[in-house]
Amino acid sequence: MSDSVSLRGRRWFEALAGDAPLLPGGPASVLAADVPLGGEAVRAIAVVPDPHNRFPRARSGEIGLDEGWAIAARVREAAAVPGRPVLAIVDVPSQAYGRTEELLGLYLACAAAVDAYASARLDGHPVVALVVGNALSGAFLAHGYQANRVLALDDPGVSIHAMGKAAAARVTRRSVADLERLGETILPLAYDVRSFARLGLLHELISGVDADAPTAADVARVRERLAAAIADARRGPPDLAGRLASEDARRNRAASIRVREQLAREWN
């Protein structure tokens, strides 16, 4: 899954950041800048490949120990400014698969990132995620999935999933072809972003932009959609209730809704 290193995260970060300076302090795998967008500064964060990462298992853009804690720090830094929006630019192949990572508590580093994003959201900061490539597994939980609004580029190279195709095939002892066939009939197993959108979990699918080499017009359009999503997040509640409200969610996440209704009836 991380056999080829993706450049999309860095490319979109740089395109959206423009002249905004990269915040110093590293690590080199976590880019952060305060980007002017819609008349205010937005804290943009991306995790990118770093061939010199001190953890060998986190050199292809994975979320490792340093990445999880750095995301947490960058989000909390931004959340010190009342109302400042946070933008996660997402192109993450997976969490880091390593023995040292497990020993040193990679789960906690990811929890720190989740905690920071969720806390910022609860404190009234619009948190928006823009998926430009892979958003897989624990890596997406740590970087992007706590956003009030998740946007994705409508592109074949964009994939939001519980586990990368190759890894999922290895773990479930199915072939990649079998997984793809299953995804055609079982919606939550599909790897393409259009199928994902039908689960009602996306705020918006942005079509008509070149995900690999965005033009100036593409970037302007995405910036405009991000600003609109930030404004929309400000109008809504600070929780994730919106993910169960759409027509798609009522159809394809019916059990998620039914469970909550029944819990409410039986709670007391």
Partner: peptide, 10 residues
Amino acid sequence: LQEANLGLAA
């Protein structure tokens, strides 16, 4: 993994 994306969403 048999409910992949809905498990991750939950």
